[in-house]
Simulated scan of single mutants.
Amino acid sequence: MTELDFDDLGPVDYLVIEFPADRIPDGSALPLLVDLVERDVIRVLDLTFVRKELDGSVSGVAIEDFGLTGDFDVTLFAEATSGLIDRTDLDEAASVLEPGCSGAVLIYENHWAAPFASKLRHNGAQLVATGRIPTQAILASLDALDAELKG
């Protein structure tokens, strides 16, 4: 990974993904992640894999040891580390995982927004809040609206 140019940095988000304990991850989403990177939509800052044991203990897992299957180079993101994730972050991320499950922690820059964010910062503006609307909440609202329009 190249050194970050913080002056041109876009908004940074994270995801914690849980993989079911009873299935080996097939890695089918990794090519989609690669596509987002190649199209400059996002820039992966960190991708770390963890395992939460049945006793609640947490351990890091190297991407090549994670057991991903599929026709792609699993080591493509092996070097994706910015140093932003520390042990406390891993423990916090793992706290949302069910015992016996594995997970991935992905920190990424919304690279598409970097020029916009940089211009705003140069004009003295700052991002003071962000948020996400869960997909399930949007779908429920659309279903309710549809029912109201039909009713």
Results as ranks from 00 to 15, higher is better:
101 C>H: 15
30 L>D: 00
88 T>G: 12
54 L>H: 08
81 T>L: 01
84 L>I: 14
101 C>L: 05
138 I>K: 08
38 E>S: 03
1 M>P: 06
95 S>H: 13
72 F>E: 09
51 R>A: 05
12 V>I: 12
144 A>G: 10
71 D>R: 11
8 D>L: 12
47 L>G: 07
142 L>W: 11
119 K>W: 07
145 L>P: 02
114 A>S: 15
109 E>S: 09
77 F>I: 06
39 R>D: 06
78 A>H: 15
89 D>L: 03
26 D>H: 12
3 E>P: 07
104 A>P: 07
149 L>M: 15
110 N>S: 08
47 L>F: 03
111 H>G: 12
39 R>Y: 00
8 D>M: 15
66 F>V: 01
91 D>N: 12
9 L>G: 01
107 I>R: 06
128 V>P: 11
79 E>N: 14
133 I>K: 00
115 P>D: 09
126 Q>E: 13
150 K>P: 01
53 E>V: 01
67 G>M: 07
53 E>G: 06
46 D>F: 05
114 A>W: 02
36 L>A: 13
84 L>G: 04
147 A>Q: 09
57 S>H: 07
3 E>D: 15
13 D>F: 14
100 G>R: 06
61 V>Y: 04
50 V>D: 11
92 E>Q: 11
29 A>F: 13
103 G>W: 09
24 I>P: 14
116 F>H: 03
118 S>L: 04
25 P>A: 08
55 D>K: 08
87 R>M: 06
134 P>S: 11
111 H>F: 10
146 D>I: 12
13 D>R: 13
106 L>Q: 11
99 P>L: 12
6 F>L: 15
59 S>M: 10
69 T>E: 12
10 G>E: 13
40 D>K: 09
137 A>M: 14
12 V>F: 02
146 D>G: 08
22 D>V: 00
45 L>E: 03
90 L>R: 14
63 I>H: 00
5 D>F: 15
53 E>D: 12
34 V>R: 06
107 I>S: 09
133 I>F: 06
31 P>Y: 04
21 A>F: 06
64 E>Q: 11
75 T>N: 05
70 G>W: 14
112 W>G: 07
128 V>A: 12
69 T>N: 04
20 P>V: 04
4 L>T: 15
56 G>F: 08
121 R>H: 10
40 D>T: 04
38 E>R: 08
94 A>G: 07
148 E>W: 07
139 L>Y: 07
44 V>M: 02
86 D>P: 05
61 V>K: 03
2 T>S: 11
112 W>L: 14
118 S>E: 15
151 G>P: 08
149 L>Y: 13
63 I>G: 01
71 D>T: 07
47 L>I: 03
57 S>Q: 10
10 G>M: 11
127 L>T: 10
